[in-house]
């Protein structure tokens, strides 16, 4: 007999593998992003090349680049304690709410931050016989993911406009490394947003019969395509998250004069 326990108590088996690696990695990754995004949101500077590199812009040396953290561009004339309120604080609420209610990120942060549970078959923190999950308010707000999805689509359309502007130089049209950075940003965000579980439900998941009529068959085709993206939702969630920070860092670095925005080609207004 290896272990003897008192009557009524059952010994427990514990996982012996490195189950903590994944939640730790996710926690570190998310915390790094949150720290960077918070810094940039409060910085309220170095987000628009046409504004921060006015002379380079007017001489056609830089494309019209806007940081994704400050898109859509607008000016807030509010002050708190004598300091201007950053528009990013208002903008980031929308992508934040989308990611916060995202079914993938729910898994990620419930495991990594709330330890409910930290990993499969590993005891949860704060076990409670009153657990109700997302049944009641305020946790029931997770059910509003579809509304954050609608806003995410609007933001994507706005990002497309940013891409269009990134081809724009004061003396014509062209492409710079910055243009490629914002193109990749909108592509990755699209792969993430349109692979969302709510999108999958809305395009066809809510139907029971796909063969009933032509519209249902069309929606089945769309559902299959969204399902393809949905199966890679976690991958696109992370890549798009990392790249949006990289895109912001690129624009910031260009605006700060740390790196030049290398122009790949340019066509003047005259052709």
């Amino acid at each position: 007999m290896a272990t003897v326990t008192g009557s009524g108590t059952l010994p427990e088996s514990k996982r012996t593998d490195a189950w903590w690696v994944q939640p730790l990695g996710i926690a570190v990754g998310l915390l790094v992003f949150i720290a960077y995004a918070t810094f940039r949101a409060f910085e309220n500077d170095l987000y628009l090349t046409t504004q921060h590199l006015a002379s380079a812009w007017s001489s056609g040396q830089v494309a019209d680049l806007l940081s994704p953290f400050y898109s859509p561009l607008f000016v807030v004339d509010w002050k708190i304690f004598g300091k201007s309120v950053s528009p990013a604080l208002l903008i980031l609420i929308f992508p934040l709410s989308f990611r916060l209610t995202c079914y993938y990120f729910r898994k990620a942060y419930y495991r990594a931050f709330f330890l409910k549970p930290p990993a499969c078959a590993v005891p949860s923190a704060n076990k409670s016989k009153r657990w109700t999950g997302e049944m009641f308010w305020p946790m029931a707000f997770q059910n509003l993911h579809r509304f954050t999805f609608y806003f995410a689509v609007l933001f994507l359309l706005n990002h497309l406009h940013d891409v269009y502007k990134a081809f724009h130089f004061v003396d014509g049209w062209g492409m710079s490394v910055g243009t490629l950075v914002v193109i990749l940003d909108v592509v990755l965000l699209s792969l993430y947003v349109f692979g969302c579980h709510s999108c999958r439900h809305l395009v066809g998941g809510r139907l029971d019969c796909y063969s009933c009529d032509a519209l249902s068959r069309t929606r089945y085709g769309m559902w299959r395509k969204v399902t393809f993206l949905n199966q890679r939702h976690a991958l696109f969630a992370w890549i798009s998250l990392i790249w949006v920070a990289c895109a912001d860092l690129y624009v910031r670095s260009v605006c700060a004069g740390v790196i030049p925005d290398v122009i790949l080609f340019k066509v003047g207004h005259g052709g």
Binding site: K107, Y110, C120, A121, N143, N230
Partner: peptide
């Protein structure tokens, strides 16, 4: 609504059924 989508059910399924993505989440929706 009690499910908070931590996907452990999917991880342990020996039949590799995507329990959360294809079952529980569509029901939640």
């Amino acid at each position: 609504g009690a499910c908070n989508i931590t996907k452990c059910c999917t991880e342990v399924c020996p039949e590799h059924i995507q329990i959360t993505d294809n079952g529980i989440i569509p029901l939640k929706e």
